[in-house]
Nucleic acid binder design. Structure first.
Lengths: 348, 348
DNA sequence: CTGAAAGCGCTTACAG
DNA sequence: CTGAAAGCGCTTACAG
């Protein structure tokens, strides 16, 4: 095999010979071991040699090969990221946050999607491990606590959407309960008593928490629960629209509506519009997530802000700490209610 | 070691010895070379040995190490994907399409974002090459034709958003001109003559094409161009809202509005709403991209459908063909106008 | 402090 | 058809 003039050569440049650590060593008059040590800060090296090596690296345009590095040393400088979806505005912002922070510490993310499916997620983790990532970040993992803890025995793990204590593992949890509580309370303060709730699916932990927040806020304010006001949804727009059909069809009265996410809130607003029910004049609507879209909906949607971009950043920073042998102590920001124009005082 | 019967489970399982090709070889009573050949279909091997190897692989739960494979053979079974954004609904759908198709041929995508910035994109390509991806897919690359052609000398390249002929390279182009032409023509047929246009930035090729489609449709129908009707935007919602302020502020009359993308159309609809101008009764609005969001806007937005998910799939399939030494002959679907409720006959 | 050597897990000419 | 050997580009004990 004569791949000395390697075809898979340098950056975007085209056909250039790939420069290896051996070439750098030769040019600097030292051994490859020394170059490696300088590159990795693995040992103290005399200033003279260090300088010579740096010069050789610069003049040859040497870039370490992460593949070889991964094979030899165990470190690939990559971290796996399993997201539930690649095409969601919510996770998208988190992915970008991760990409930025990981880049800052010289690591490359490997994104792969789990589709809210445990088997799929298992497959994704397997792929990532086969690729020898240095650590794995999971956004709202479907794997159970035990599986995550076991995984963390082999490599650093950070998981969002739950609290979990384990060695070599960091978790980041957003206060969905508190956010939902606050949203409901806001509606209550506006004088609403008949507040409908469109929930997410029960296999989403955050959906369960948000419903609990809704319930407890009502109780805390002494408003009787009416289960007919709780309509099941699936986080997609269409289920929000269907919820309106259901409520109206059954003649269930309500002056406000809290949807467990913005997408359903938007779907509900369309349903209301189709029935010529004005928002917020006749019905107030509030969502959860604070998607970009809601900012430009008609009317602009009040919502609980969820800091997905920051969450991505925090997850990546936690991973950086773990990789560095430290104990990450990062916390998610608290929920924040963003009031726009879809909510108003109750006039019913 | 019966637990190893399930590779996916074992991969996420925790501390297990990693099984190598040598172990498989020993168990099957053959050499590592033979195992490798069977795995890669690289040579004809006697049925007896093939069976023995398959059995050994199954019982040991062997999974080839792509890192070692990449170092030794040059193939990493990964393909780099540079997208402009990780957090865009439009690109997100394409990424998912790519992930699905790549998985079908046993390759893993490496997503990285270019942020519509040439330097950033160059960096991304360099990272991908350092990781020894087998090929690179670029969505709406900022790199110029020459750079792409040069890149394709080293590894298969597929690029969307332009037509480019070169060896080892496939391009996929969507007919933005045609789509814009059709949208404008539709408005014309509804009787509109004063059609405002909110354009995208000129450094987006698709934005330029869409504006050209608008202009030529007007000409083709003998409607005089009024440059004051063309307002610059930047593809973001807010620029659509600002365009409305501008139009109204300058007293420029229009009965219809064509925005070069849905996000600006949505922003414009909000602007119109704020000025109590009814859509579509007083002004018809049409967008481009057919985002999920537009389906649930108020009113639901008419738009030119852009098949981003399919585009991702086609790009991945083109890459598969290239990787296989074939010449991909895939074509993007034609633009399709989706008429919803934001457009109506001109009553002005 | 630093080099020679072995090894990471695979692939692929090279010889049977 | 198949095995032994070399090599991919690096890292890291092991000895100075």
């Amino acid at each position: 095999m004569t791949r000395l003039a390697n075809p898979a050569a340098s950056a975007s440049a085209g056909t250039e010979p790939v420069v290896t650590i051996a070439m750098v060593a030769r040019a600097a008059g030292v051994s490859a071991s020394t170059v490696s040590r300088i590159l990795n800060g693995t040992a103290v090296v005399s200033q003279a040699k260090a300088d010579a090596v740096q010069r050789a690296i610069a003049s040859l345009g040497y870039v370490p090969n992460p593949v070889a590095r991964g094979l030899a040393g165990g470190r690939t400088l990559s971290v796996g990221v399993v997201t539930q979806a690649l095409d969601s505005p919510f996770y998208g912002a988190a992915l970008r946050g991760i990409e930025i922070e990981l880049q800052a510490i010289g690591h490359t993310p490997l994104f792969i999607s789990g589709q809210w499916n445990e088997a799929e997620e298992q497959r994704s983790v397997a792929v990532l491990r086969a690729r020898r990532v240095d650590g794995i970040i999971l956004l709202d993992a479907r794997l159970d606590d035990e599986q995550l803890v076991r995984l963390a025995r082999d490599l650093p793990v950070v998981v969002t959407g739950r609290s979990l204590q384990a060695p070599n593992l960091a978790s980041l949890r957003f206060d969905n309960f508190g956010g939902a509580f606050e949203a409901t309370e806001y509606l209550l303060r506006l004088g609403h008593r008949r507040i409908a709730f469109i929930s997410g699916a029960d296999d989403h932990q955050d959906a369960v928490e948000r419903r609990r927040g809704y319930r407890e806020a009502l109780q805390a304010h002494g408003v009787a629960l009416d289960d007919r006001l709780i309509v099941p949804g699936d986080y997609r727009e269409i289920s929000g629209a269907r919820a309106i059909e259901h409520l109206l069809g059954q003649g269930i009265a309500f002056s406000a509506l809290f949807a467990a996410n913005d997408q359903m809130a938007l779907g509900a607003m369309l349903g209301l519009y189709q029935h010529h029910i004005a928002v917020p004049r006749q019905v107030s609507v509030i969502g959860f997530d604070d998607l970009q879209t809601g900012e430009f909906s008609i009317p602009p949607l009040s919502s609980v802000h969820q800091p997905s971009h920051e969450m991505g950043q925090l997850a990546a920073r936690s991973m950086a700490a773990l990789l560095d042998g430290q104990l990450p102590q990062l916390q998610m920001p608290s929920p924040r209610l963003i009031v726009r124009e879809s909510t108003a005082f109750c006039t019913a």
